[in-house]
Design a protein around this nucleic acid. Structure first.
Lengths: 244, 244
DNA sequence: CGAGAAGTTGACGGGTCTCAACGAAAGTGG
DNA sequence: CCACTTTCGTTGAGACCCGTCAACTTCTCG
């Protein structure tokens, strides 16, 4: 394999992989499927028997509410695994849709069990990834429950800024953010109107500059302060398991 | 083993356990520790190298905010595993405290890896439990982001009502709920004052009766409707893995 | 019985929502 | 390349839900 895929790269972040491990992982990425932006991978209530790896493009999971509004739960970047939540369930608990054109690979739940049988290292990393996703959710929950609109917005943007740094998809202090203000509102529990107001306020204060699909952070540290951002939940480290 | 512990009972819910599996699980419950109500198991920032099984009493995880307020993230019942979230981290991301006197058993992260090595069934179930906890968090997030104070409160109470049914800790339409209104507010992102008002409203409408540590649901279905409660996230089922 | 915690109630203020109209940008077909 | 359409973003006015503060009452437990 000349070039590591997003997933293998993601896993290597947690620890050393043997030849066999890499082969097992590669098996999970056998059937890459091109998928258009705005397309839906699955809906709430669909039967759940497979995971997805996202190799290209952004995606998000969501939930429709009875009043017609929508809550966005997580935003997935290339390299992420989608659908871990439903491993213990027969049905999807949330829908998942693309934010732009991309590529995904499906693999059935049973294949994961096969991985459990074959590789202790991969079992551990899968568990770590699941626990990491839980940490992301936790932080999002705190953000929604306890912070003002300004802080929520600042927090989400800054989180993306940090996550994109990890995947080397950042240029200077500017990131690509393929989310409409409606998306932002749906993710933050705010109306798109208020997102607009808050963004203009940030622009006037020089905290954030937005143009088309890009966001520039003139002073990232100031934005982090505004958000009361604590980055512990992004600083994982399980490598100590593999070093003694 | 004459009497199954909470944990073994919890695991059996997901699938058949071999003799060896039960023995492995029992190993995780070697050192039961009595612990007083209001006592803190750990604080945010403490080093994380072990899980906890809760065998008796209720507990909760929380996060202190800069403004002095507090967010409660999850409520743990006997049989739950605490600290899964931090498997991939060096530090605790949230504090954990008891709601009443109880008993917990600590076991180090490395012991889990040992379980991964020894039992495919247990690996699968551990992963399922982690994914189940993620589902609980997801639902809580939706609740906080999108619902009114009335719905949030109704939702939390009804969730407890259902979870307690599973653990057979329910008497008729009445449950024990060892949470103060302050606790409820901290869990729901509401002020304790507003929790009080909402509870009185529910009482006047005959939706909910609260006395000391008990809550009675005269009409559970009505409460579920008020909460727009969808129970999919509590109806797990991975047993199909073990049946073919 | 006394003290402290927990819960209740009222008045007031503020952050965010809704509705609505308008403007800007982006995609579409001729 | 232009008119058209549609989505997306901006701005204002008014309303509402819930937070804060504060006083008071009720429980709980030593």
């Amino acid at each position: 394999m000349s070039q590591d895929s997003c997933i293998i790269c993601h896993f290597k972040h947690y620890g050393e992989l043997s030849e066999n491990d890499e082969a097992l992982l590669a098996e999970l990425e056998q059937s890459p499927t091109e998928i258009k932006g705005d397309q839906i991978l699955w809906q709430e209530g669909d039967t759940a028997h497979e995971f997805c790896t996202l190799s290209k493009g952004w995606a998000y999971s969501f939930r429709h509410m009875e009043d017609g509004s929508r809550q966005i739960l997580e935003i997935y970047l290339p390299g992420d695994i989608i659908g871990l939540r439903e491993f213990a369930f027969k049905e999807r608990l949330t829908g998942v849709a693309m934010l732009e054109d991309g590529v995904v690979c499906h693999f059935p739940h049973r294949r994961l069990i096969n991985v459990f049988r074959e590789s202790l290292t991969l079992s551990t990393i899968f568990f770590a990834i699941s626990s990491h996703q839980q940490a992301l959710l936790t932080e999002r929950l705190v953000n929604l429950a306890r912070r003002s609109a300004r802080q929520r917005l600042a927090h989400l943007i800054y989180e993306m800024y940090v996550r994109l740094e990890r995947t080397k998809a950042r240029q200077g202090n500017s990131i690509r953010l393929p989310l409409s203000q409606q998306h932002l509102g749906d993710a933050l529990g705010l109306s798109s109107v208020h997102v607009s107001r808050t963004l203009t306020a940030f622009r006037e204060e020089g905290l954030l500059l937005r143009s088309r699909q890009r966001v520039e952070l003139p002073d990232p540290a100031a934005l982090a302060r505004e958000a009361e951002f604590g980055d512990a939940y992004l600083n994982d480290g399980i490598d100590h398991f593999f070093h003694h």
